[in-house]
Design a protein around this nucleic acid. Structure first.
Lengths: 340, 340
DNA sequence: AGAGTCTTCCAAAGCGCTTTGGCTTTTCCG
DNA sequence: CGGAAAAGCCAAAGCGCTTTGGAAGACTCT
């Protein structure tokens, strides 16, 4: 059932039927009702391919997915996706993932906008001076950055959490508890979020005249194994930290294992605070010693990004407004005063 | 730069240019060369919207993503996606995720095929008599099921791993080691994979005249917390199992925690084997006691599914061939003879 | 040389929708 | 009541590609 048939059936022109369906004003309300009714009865659904050829609108939002045998998609992605998908569903949006060589995403960005394959895109895991942000911005397609870049000479719309503030608070608490030697087990420090977190810790330390000692900050992919290695290395030093801030729950698993392997205890020998993105399948309160966390639902962020993208597509939002969400600091058993 | 302009530029008809570019035989090789050359020089890229309107081909594969605030996307999904994306990239395929109400995916399947939004779809986490499989099969769009349904009265193409065989082997090993009371901590038993695993365990036990005791099989969403609860419940029974087979590494984390909380040890008091989908961020060899596993890379499965979808789209594969991959049994420190 | 066959190319008709520009009718108002 | 404005509808022109149905010219063959 296509427009032609439907309009023929109603003894109306395609123009009128199209307009009636799309809510244009120049059609009699009674006619509109008739049309809508008939459309529903016959299960008419405009062909999206035709529509997009005519309008350029696709009803899809895009994401360039870095791939490669050596590239691991972050498990955080799936949570983000849950939120994004949930919002997208309620707004009849689909999501298209365009796989790209992790080292050359720009070609793919160019392609999807040149081809008008999507109405908007989002960018995640931005780095300082991120070229994708610059590119997408000049390409002129609506977009939202999840996270922030840095050192770009223009503004852009983003939704981020206050990583610096979160880790500042976490570190401040630890310092207040008397800890003097802190360490940071961070994610890949080419990404802005990791830089911000480190900055937060340093700033908190600086207030008390402390510094993040040389070798007291590790940054690497956020796996359990890396968490273990980092913690092990840190705790075996002569100037081992008495407190660790950790960028992910998964790494924290490794930290806990290292602590145990070394015959130490939390929080007796080591205080630990990790960042919690709120996974349904791994909860900080369920760690053998309940884990203190800086908490922010990445899923909500996904929903918010979708919401903003939808708003930008329909022209309801514009400009380069960035928003930064506060992060909760949740104290549980894994922190205590510094050992004597 | 569109076809019209390009053909004008070459003083050829759109027909000829189109054919030259798409490799049709009725065009002089020298002309073809000229066309291809000019196209490249001017960066001509056929507009996909137009092409899909004309041909119906989209160059996209679809997946209906179950969503909802109460619905958690499985972290396995992201690994599967890595493999799928990696293959898709090398074949210029994009992936479209259509979010759907978890309880009504069929409407969405109908929509994406009626609208010809994708060239093929895949279905994951199938259940017995899965209606999606039946639907998609009648809808006549190329598809692959990742996993298997059961009790359908027709054949369909799938790629699955030998879940039953894997858990059969695991259980057989445990029985050989003298264990008499096994338990199974399984995933959601509405899904076929879980049913198969349970079947495998039962079959192995049956050989020695054993059974999976009432209350010795738990099935629930595969979270750390559920793993903990299940293990705790099992181990506090008077007829506590001496060995557990577990459907996921994440649940196994919980099992290990429960064991520790109860002051027990692995493998002294309890032998443990879990299924490993091969996550880059959580490895069984890194458990405090290295974990024996049944191992199968879900990522490779993703790549394989993509490969088969591509083959079906281009007509290279047809029929309802199902393939079942063997699963490795990897023995590590978490299994030992049954306690006396 | 004329008939038949390839080879190579073209004009034009879709694909199914939106949108421009215009044409009737109604409605409004002095 | 007459003219202007508004309302309601339509025909047709795209959007950019593929594909059908020729047609012109080059070749082969008798």
């Amino acid at each position: 059932m296509n427009l032609k048939q439907l309009s023929h059936m109603l003894a109306l022109s395609q123009t009128t039927v199209s307009r009636a369906l799309n809510g244009y004003p120049e059609v009699n309300e009674e006619t509109r009702r008739r049309v809508i009714d008939a459309a529903k009865r016959h299960g008419y659904r405009p062909n999206p391919s035709a529509r997009r050829l005519a309008t350029g609108k696709t009803g899809m939002i895009g994401y360039v997915l870095p791939t490669g045998t050596a590239v691991d998609i972050d498990p955080h992605f799936v949570e983000f996706l849950s939120g994004l998908g949930d919002y997208a569903r309620s707004h009849e949006l689909d999501l298209v993932l365009s796989p790209a060589d992790a080292d050359d995403q720009e070609t793919t960005y160019r392609r999807i906008v040149a081809n008008r394959q999507v109405d908007a895109v989002y960018i995640s895991s931005p780095r300082p001076a991120d070229r994708r942000v610059a590119l997408v911005s000049t390409l002129g397609i609506p977009f939202i950055v999840h996270g922030r870049s840095e050192g770009l000479d223009f503004d852009y719309p983003f939704t981020d959490i206050d990583n610096e503030g979160a880790f500042h608070e976490a570190a401040r608490l630890l310092v207040q508890l008397g800890h003097r030697r802190l360490a940071l087990i961070n994610g890949d420090d080419r990404e802005t979020f990791a830089i911000h977190r480190e900055r937060g810790v340093r700033r908190a330390l600086a207030v008390s005249g402390l510094v993040l000692g040389e070798g007291h900050v590790c940054s690497m992919a956020m796996t359990e194994e890396n968490g273990y290695r980092a913690a092990r290395r840190l705790l075996e030093r002569s100037d081992a930290p008495t407190a660790i801030a950790c960028s992910s729950l998964i790494m924290a698993l490794g930290v806990v294992r290292a602590v145990r392997d070394l015959g130490l205890t939390i929080p007796g020998d080591l205080s630990l605070i990790a960042h919690d993105d709120v996974f349904p399948w791994l909860k900080p309160e369920n760690f053998s010693v309940p884990l203190s966390t800086t908490r922010s639902s990445i899923r909500l962020a996904g929903a918010r990004v979708a919401e903003r993208l939808a708003a930008r597509i329909s022209g309801l939002e514009e400009g380069a407004r960035g928003e930064v969400w506060p992060v909760d600091l949740v104290i549980r058993g894994s922190v205590a005063g510094a050992p004597a």
